[in-house]
């Protein structure tokens, strides 16, 4: 008889009932169907006895052992053992004693792609050389400025700013004291004070220098009439300026080049080092 003929009870419910795997409600439903229909009762009872027959089947004795030999899985075994060896190495690194911050910093610096890292190191060395050269040039620059401000030909000169140009007058007026009191080289440089310490003084233009070197006293002095020598002073200034212009350009282009080289090298060091780290990470990934 086909179990599909069970109209009032689903076949999966019958299976569960025969196995005793039903709720109270489901059991009552099946038993009600069995009570109402002889066919359903026959179906359920014969299925139950069939299950008993099946469960009575003896267990089958094992004919032999089915353990695997290495030959049966040699290829996979080899792969797994090789992989296990590779995976076994990281734990030894993990077990290493904790590193000090300085060691970690050194490791951080040493990391990355070797070629790019070496290039970055080379750029850093060049940067250092450029810096040293630039510093050396700057130390020599103040001497040049002294010539600019108070050349030896005018020992007691008065510096006057006129229309942004530099003027020195031999007369020792009131305003002349500030420059003349120094008496020595660098009198105007002293009056400029901070500007002289600026390492960029080497690239400063002459007009700028003249403007900055004119102190208030000097301006006052310039405002006073200079009856005897305005035209002579102008001529002297012209000569002095031409002298200075002749001395300055010799170092200025070199200093400019060094300054740009320094900027480029700083950028090169940063970019190369970052590239080195990036490439190293991408390789690891």
């Amino acid at each position: 008889m086909d179990p599909q003929s069970l109209n009032s009870v689903d076949e999966d419910l019958v299976a569960a009932y025969v196995d005793g795997d039903v709720t109270t409600e489901e059991r009552q439903r099946v038993e009600a169907a069995m009570a109402a229909s002889e066919q359903v009762a026959w179906e359920v009872n014969t299925l139950r006895q069939t299950v008993e027959l099946l469960q009575d089947l003896p267990s089958v004795p094992l004919p032999r052992s089915f353990t695997l030999t290495e030959d049966q899985v040699a290829d996979v075994l080899q792969e797994r053992r090789a992989l296990a060896k590779v995976n076994a190495s990281p734990p030894s690194e993990i077990e290493a004693p904790p590193q000090s911050p300085w060691q970690r910093f050194l490791n951080f610096l040493n990391g990355g792609d070797l070629a790019l890292r070496n290039a970055a190191a080379l750029a850093a060395v060049l940067l250092l050389l450029v810096f040293v050269a630039e510093t050396g040039l700057q130390r020599t620059q103040p001497g040049g400025n002294e010539q600019l401000s108070s050349g030896p030909a005018v020992p007691e000169g008065q510096v006057t700013a006129v229309g942004g140009s530099l003027s020195q007058q031999p007369d020792s007026g009131a305003g002349g004291q500030s420059a003349a009191e120094g008496g020595s080289e660098g009198a105007v440089a002293d009056s400029n004070g901070e500007e002289d310490d600026d390492p960029q003084i080497g690239v400063m233009s002459i007009g700028d220098e003249g403007q900055q070197s004119a102190s208030p006293e000097q301006e006052q002095a310039a405002a006073q009439p200079q009856p005897d020598s305005s035209s002579g002073a102008a001529a002297t200034n012209q000569q002095q300026l031409s002298d200075n212009q002749g001395a300055e350009p010799a170092d200025q282009p070199l200093v400019t080049v060094l300054r740009y080289a320094r900027i480029l090298l700083v950028l090169a060091v940063i970019v190369l080092w970052l590239l080195s780290r990036t490439r190293s990470r991408s390789r690891r990934a």
């Binding site: 089958v60 052992s65 353990t67 080899q78 792969e79 992989l83």
Partner: peptide, 21 residues
């Protein structure tokens, strides 16, 4: 999984009866 065949054979011994049935 690490290539220890003896370990897998212990599983074989445990389940070979069920599997053969």
């Amino acid at each position: 999984l690490q290539g220890d065949l003896e370990a897998f054979n212990q599983l074989v011994i445990e389940y070979q009866g069920l599997g053969y049935g």
